[in-house]
Design a protein around this nucleic acid. Structure first.
Lengths: 207, 207
DNA sequence: CAGTGTGAACAGTTTCACAGCA
DNA sequence: TGCTGTGAAACTGTTCACACTG
């Protein structure tokens, strides 16, 4: 197949594969078959082989995939082989939880700066990061930070997005329950937590 | 078209539509056109008309949709017209943030009970909910709670899922970065926060 | 011979264009 | 005239079966 456009769905699954590969690696596994990985991930083995086929020949027939090589390859594709720094805006409940969350490291992600508007919070240290005044957000331009996380109240979401774009951010993870408009070259992923919970009842069997 | 199977993607979008309709309603809007709603949501107008067409005739040609009626209809379809109670397991950083999060109410969702394993936390009151011992999880069966939220460390995720299933839960929102295996009749949605952030760099333009 | 890589068939989703109704 | 509702076309993603290889 070698070199077609990579489906979005495949890209979405790559971090999941990566997570499971790192897990397998921790367990001391050196090689892993598509079927083996499939169990860990919760998809079919052919889905996995198809997904990997978009990038070239990763595996060895009869053996499987080399866990470490594959993990490194996926990191490279996702552009997280070198640590990506992120700026957090809004250190409320969700923001604080994100700062305390230890799961970013293994994906090569690091929340390097945090901003808030409340004078009460500015200057405080939360998990190795000192909260700064949101008025000084533009300084991230100098630090070449390309990832932004929005965890402010929804009324302030669009305004915060505008500021982040002005500061040179290229990707935004939005935790506010609002659609935010940005220039085409900026990628936004919105996680509306309540929304996910809201779609569950539909799928729940009656009995 | 009237009565085919509703696409999963449409179901996924319904809570987003609902959110925007409630917003429009707050603003005092009585009717809304598909184009109008499309702007609020961030999709195309024909997508919206198509989605609604799966359920019957909601709109009035030349006028648009009645905001309140449509919102009520969507709630009914999603089975959140009557308040759905949820049980939270794990009151750490993420769990606490969820308890404090005010966004559930408008979707007819309510975190009615919370459990933790730490004796330090048991008995404490967080946002109107008293944290209970996870050993007594089974009591939710009597209270007919059908929704579970997993916010425990990943090593305990599967075990927690098993307990929730045993307690009669029908839908699980999983915040741990692990695939969890459950009987087919139970629906699981996994939100691995770091994962979403990890897929952003791939889409970020180089310049 | 176990396990990858992939064309082809299939399934699901989005886009389009326009008929039809208030 | 303005906006909905929808079949048909285009597109995207998944499943399958199997040729091929270490």
């Amino acid at each position: 197949m070698r070199y077609r456009k990579i489906p979005d769905e495949t890209v979405r699954r790559l971090p999941v594969y990566l997570r499971c590969l790192l897990f397998a690696s921790e367990q001391g596994q050196e090689n892993i078959s598509s079927r083996n990985l499939a169990e860990l991930v919760g998809v079919n083995s052919w889905q996995i082989r198809k997904d990997f086929s978009y990038f070239g020949d990763f595996g060895t027939r009869g053996v499987g995939y080399n866990v470490k090589k594959l993990a490194a390859q996926i990191k490279k594709i996702l552009k997280i082989a070198v640590v990506q720094k992120a700026a957090l805006v809004g250190v409320g409940n969700i923001g604080s939880a994100l700062l305390a969350y230890s799961g970013f490291g293994k994906y090569g992600l690091d929340i390097a700066v945090a901003f808030d508007i409340s004078p009460k919070k500015i200057g405080r240290k939360v998990e190795k990061v000192v909260i700064e005044d949101v008025a000084s957000l533009l300084k991230i331009k100098k630090r070449k930070i390309k990832l932004g996380i929005i965890a402010v109240p929804e009324q302030a979401a669009q305004e915060t997005a505008d500021k982040l774009v002005k500061a040179g951010i290229k990707g935004i993870l939005n935790f506010s329950p609002r659609y935010i408009a940005v220039p085409k070259k900026v990628k936004v992923i919105t996680i509306d937590i309540a929304m996910y919970l809201a779609s569950l009842p539909y799928y729940m069997t009656a009995i």
